[in-house]
Nucleic acid binder design. Structure first.
Length: 168
DNA sequence: AGCAAGATCGGT
DNA sequence: CCGATCTTGCTG
């Protein structure tokens, strides 16, 4: 049987948590119906010094959720039409988040949020206590691959070279 | 108050 | 390659 992942799972450095998310199950409850998805690709964004991270602009209304304790959700709208689903990592006060980039049957962060029906109303919600979305243990994964993060050419040489995208 | 850009996607 | 579409942070 599977149980919900709790604070001790999320309260780790984003670079440790990100690869560990691969193979985990996202449980989404919509109108009493429960759906399961497996995480297959993620990207880590780490602290105010990471110029690819939205928190590099500092603590603003938009980035506030990233400063919460690990296990919260950071949502944001991109290009005026796609919601990005991010899981906050680490301890309170240190901005770290992981973009969920692909699921087993759904590729692309915008498409998966549409499939899971995730939007602004999930901003700041806790995966530890929410009744409509949480994580459980899934399958053991081996042979985790990594590469550069996508779509962050603006971040400058040292940050765009970081291999902080993990996938299977 | 106005503006440019964006952790994307789908169609040419 | 390009347009859609709108929030955000920066500038003045």
């Amino acid at each position: 049987m599977s149980v919900r992942l709790l604070h001790n799972f999320y309260n780790r450095d984003v670079l440790e948590l990100a690869p560990d998310l691969l193979g985990k199950k996202i449980i989404r409850s919509i109108n009493g119906e429960v759906f399961e998805y497996f995480i297959t690709e993620v990207e880590a964004y780490r602290g105010e010094e990471d110029r690819a991270c939205h928190a590099s602009k500092g603590r603003t209304k938009r980035t506030e959720a990233m400063y919460l304790e690990g296990g919260h959700i950071y949502m944001y709208l991109i290009y005026g039409m796609y919601w990005m689903f991010n899981i906050v990592a680490g301890t309170e006060g240190i901005p770290q988040a992981i973009l969920i980039r692909s699921l087993k049957d759904f590729r692309g962060p915008g498409r998966l949020s549409r499939e899971l029906r995730l939007d602004k109303s999930f901003y700041g919600e806790s995966l530890v206590t929410s009744k409509r979305i949480w994580l459980e243990n899934g399958i053991e994964v081996c042979d985790i691959k990594k590469g550069r993060r996508i779509g962050i050419d603006y971040a400058g040489e040292i940050w765009k070279k970081k291999e902080w995208r993990f996938f299977i």
